[in-house]
Every structure is written in structure tokens, then in C-alpha cells.
Amino acid sequence: MLEAIDLSKSYNGSTALDSLNLKIEPGEIFCLLGANGAGKTTTINLFLNFIEPSSGTVRINGLDVTREPLATKKFLAYIPEQVNLYRNLTGVENLEYFTALAGGKYSRTELMGFLGEAGLPEGAAERRVGEYSKGMRQKVGIAIAIAKRAQALLLDEPTSGLDPKAANEFSELLLKMRDGGGAILMATHDLFRAKETGTRVGIMKRGCLMAVLNTDEIGHADLERIYLDHMHD
């Protein structure tokens, strides 16, 4: 579903991403680990076509992202660290707008249903997003993904800054999306959650994908050790 082939990106000679090869299938959660500046966000931006690759190909559902920037987004949902919504609009208004942009037409009850499915507390949907907590905004982001029936999710450190309960709820939602056949790419610093929710984890350093591990084959301690090993020069 999500595929990067020999993908590189450099800014003015400095390499942000170095021949990344990655393939994420439906029903899989791939967690990208790595220090700040390792190339995780660059990878996500490349999938979003927010930046152009220096070389290589990015594919979503078999379509080249640079050639079909709009068609590929039909399959996508994007949840950044901070899901930024229009503060002056209500949660349901925000959802309505973003799903409409994706070509979806839903009744009000259906929209409320998506928000409920994403776990937004009853009554919050009609309040302005300006009053929402961070976790509530993430849930609107999930609702957008659900409403859009997104087959691929791009998550950029979605749980950082969430309290443990909210983070846990978020992980539950991710697992549900995965079980529904979603292909999920998540950049994160949270080794624990990567191990818990991820199908595979990849460790990145200076634009290179150093290692890819299956989470069911290693324990927490192993993951941390391998990670730290890679971080040492």
C-alpha cells in the first residue's frame, strides 16, 4: 500500500533521506524510530508530496505520488503531532469540511457517528475546536481517517504530549484501523508503544534506515538495546 523505492532527499547538498526502501502492506503498522533529524518527517512529507524527492519513487496503492499527487491522497489520512484544525469551527464542522474535500458527502448523524467511533466524548462535537484538548483533536483526526475510509495512515509522532490514558486510547484506535485493513506508517520516539502497537519497527539514523525488526520477535529490552546501539557511532 505504502511503498518507497530508493527514495532520497537532499537539501542544498545535505542528505535528509538516503535511498530508503520500504513497503507497508494493508493490516500492518510500521513504526519509524530515530533521533530528531533522522529523516522520519521527511519520509512522511514525501508520501504527502509536500516535498519532491531528489531521486527514487514514492507509491501509494501503486500510484506514483509525484505524478498523481491528488489521486494518491484519496487513500491517505495524515495525523501530525498536533492535529491542527480550525479553532473557530466545531469538531463536526471541521470533519465535514475535510471529508467534503476528500469528496465524501455525509449526513450530520453519520458525521457524529464517525466522531463517536473515534472516541470523541459525547457533546464535544458541537463545541468549537479551540476548547479541545490535544487528545480530542487527535480523535477528530482519526475520525477524518475513518470517514474517508483511508487505506493508508501517515502518523507523525501522534502520541507525544498525550497523557498515558489518551495515548492508550489512541493506540487502541490504531489497532482497530489496522484490523480494518489499513496500512499505517507512524514516526515516533516512544519505543514502548512502537513495540506494543507496531507490526514492524524501523530504526533511522541520518537519513538511512539502519534496521527493520518484527515486533513479535523481540522483547522491550532487546528493542531498546538495539536502538541505543544504532544511536552510538
Binding site: F50, T72, Y78, P80, L101, G103, I144
Partner: peptide, 14 residues
């Protein structure tokens, strides 16, 4: 600046 642009443009819209 508020970040909504990225969310909007992750939808199929130019």
C-alpha cells in the same frame, strides 16, 4: 502557520 494547511493538503486537493 497554524498547521491546518498540512491537514487540508493531505486531502486530495491542490
Amino acid at each position: 502557520e497554524s498547521g491546518t494547511l498540512a491537514v487540508t493538503l493531505s486531502q486530495p486537493i491542490a
